[in-house]
């Protein structure tokens, strides 16, 4: 499936991921082909087990496909070294998780700064950028709090700030509203939309809810690990 004719930021061909499970195998993703142009806001839709998170893991460089090709922002993810993959995760993609995945021993500020510091950036400008992001996300009063002291919405906004600290070209959000109430969920979707519209970030949201549907430039529907547009029908 092709979403654009310009130079794509994501170019996947026959992407397949098979997990061994004891003596049998589970097909997580089955020959998925997909191109996404820069500046898109793509919503990956599908039920639980449809392959959304698997696709997102592959795009984030967290997992490796069993077959096919995958190029993201010029990185051929099947043929990069481990250290290149680390750089890719630090600088090219920003990841937002359903479970927030903040490090519990670190403060909001420290969590946000971490990817930049891992990328070898200087501390002072990183801190300035983190403050800027936290101000934008209305988190300026919570900078020194630990994750355990935050509400779900605050945790997710912290995760968004963390995902943006290195100015990544691609934002990946895996069920970002899954652990939030509707008000906070709506606020998170608004922020992702703002990222896409105002800051021209490419955003891919994997979700089974309909909250993100209105702001999507495209929707990709998955079923049993394969793209199946008919499942997107309301």
């Amino acid at each position: 499936m092709s979403l654009s004719t310009t130079t794509p930021i994501v170019d996947a061909r026959d992407l397949t991921r098979i997990y061994p499970l004891g003596d049998s195998e589970v097909v997580g993703l089955n020959r998925v082909s997909l191109t996404i142009a820069p500046g898109e806001l793509v919503v990956l839709k599908g039920n639980s087990g449809s392959g959304k998170s698997t696709l997102l893991s592959l795009l984030a460089g967290l997992d490796e496909p069993s077959a096919g090709t995958l190029t993201v922002a010029g990185y051929d993810l099947l043929n990069v070294s481990e250290s290149e993959k680390n750089s890719y995760r630090r600088e090219v993609v920003g990841m937002i998780f359903q479970a927030f995945n903040l490090l519990p021993t670190m403060t909001v500020m420290e969590n946000v700064c971490l990817p930049a510091l891992l990328a070898g950036k200087a501390c002072a400008p990183t801190a300035d950028r983190a403050r800027e992001l936290l101000d934008w996300l209305d988190m300026d009063t919570r900078r020194d709090h630990r994750p355990a002291q935050l509400s779900g919405g605050e945790m997710q906004r912290t995760a968004i700030a963390r995902a943006l600290i290195n100015d990544p070209a691609l934002i990946l959000a895996d069920e970002p509203t899954g652990n939030l109430d509707s008000r906070n969920g709506g606020r998170v979707i608004e922020l992702l939309q703002e990222l896409n519209r105002r800051w021209r970030r490419t955003v891919i949201i994997a979700t089974h809810s309909n909250l993100a549907d209105p702001c999507a430039t495209h929707q990709v529907c998955l079923k049993d690990g394969a793209i199946n547009d008919s499942t997107c029908a309301p």
Partner: peptide, 16 residues
Amino acid sequence: RREVAILRSLGASSRV
């Protein structure tokens, strides 16, 4: 394990 995985997902190398 999960926290280590978070670190890794943020770009920390296995050496770190």
